[in-house]
Write a protein that binds this DNA or RNA. Sequence first.
DNA 1: AACCGCTTGTGAACGCAGGAACAAAGTCGC
DNA 2: GCGACTTTGTTCCTGCGTTCACAAGCGGTT
Lengths: 227, 227
Amino acid sequence: MQSRPRIPEATVARLAVYLRVLTGLVDSGRGTISSGELAAAAGVNPAGLRKDLSHLGPCGTRGVGYEVSTLRDRIAAVLGMETAHACVLVGIGNLGSALAGYGGFGNRGFEFVGLFDASPARVGQRVGDLLVRPMEELDAVVTGTRATIGVIATPAEVAQPVCDRLTAAGVRSILNFAPVALSAPAGVGVRQVDLSVELQVLAFLDKQRGVPGQTTPAALAPAGGMA
Amino acid sequence: MQSRPRIPEATVARLAVYLRVLTGLVDSGRGTISSGELAAAAGVNPAGLRKDLSHLGPCGTRGVGYEVSTLRDRIAAVLGMETAHACVLVGIGNLGSALAGYGGFGNRGFEFVGLFDASPARVGQRVGDLLVRPMEELDAVVTGTRATIGVIATPAEVAQPVCDRLTAAGVRSILNFAPVALSAPAGVGVRQVDLSVELQVLAFLDKQRGVPGQTTPAALAPAGGMA
DNA sequence: AACCGCTTGTGAACGCAGGAACAAAGTCGC
DNA sequence: GCGACTTTGTTCCTGCGTTCACAAGCGGTT
């Protein structure tokens, strides 16, 4: 039954989106929803949505649609959201503080069980409802809480050593916000999020479809004092 | 000559990574670099890197490699990084404050020229080196600074109206951190970044390759001789 | 009870991205 | 000046993701 040989990663990412939309629909009391409407809410193609859902086995009623709460529970089960995931966060700077205080994680089954920073100035500060701990306690907290996910929000220079310490402590998945490519041992999943890359792609796509005929790079008159 | 019909988006995203690595290499005084070494630093396949670079036309010397500074300038030109891009940021909560204070943008040619929030409590606060402005000034700032990129870090409920106001003011690209699918008029690029989706994909991949047969969530054998 | 419309689920084609192998070319050494 | 080595740029191929289009199934209606 649960032996789904593999679900494509792109599908998994979209399933997480469907799960969020469905949770909102449950709260608003919606009973059933069609693939077309759900696809519109998630911003995807209806056919693709049905194909994504087909990986979970049949979970809709033909002629009617999908039962919202049932579908949500099923996706949650497949994604492993039945139990909360314990995460540790290393690097409590600007971004780290925001991540620690961001409510969007806790609502979706992820809980930070430890915040760590190398700077003594940061250690002891309260961020959200946790205290920042020194790096020395990382290993103990990871093993003690069975945390499986590590989030790196440190400067780029120390991201690799932090990654090494996390994996050595037993963390199996790493979400890296530092702008460096991490190398981790086999069996450890690493996912890279580079915020400025997103901006650069955005800027390029705009430039690519931008005002045709404007080949001069000096186009954009710096009327504003943007320096 | 410069009429590159189209560069795949996946390539553009990697070009941004190469640009970052190359900038670091320039600072460290490196003169030339081979595709293999650069690929390792960027975390990609050497052949793929060469294919990416082939979209810019020949920019390497056979038998030697790529000249670091030349290649960096060329990628910067293609990505449109010659001139800084002015961005406005809406929603100065936890995440918004972190984005405003994040140095990784300014170093890469993106500058925030306006921070906006609907809450009077936030307006007037200083974040980074800018003051938070009320939403009423958004239109004037966007037109005055010729800002082309808008970043949304608001709660999900108001993200769509904020998107509408940004596009009405003339913003052509939007980076959305709110967990909702935005609909924008044609000609406006929207890019979605959902942090919890990243975590969910990570958790799923871990579960998928995790200890087989262990359906109990309490599994986690610490005798890590796995791979 | 049978028909009809609506929606899901699936099969097939298209396009794209990724990876490996090969040829061209330039440099270094003799 | 010539040969060999190194590295780029390109080409082919395999696999994946996405999209379109159709058959199957359920509910409501007459």
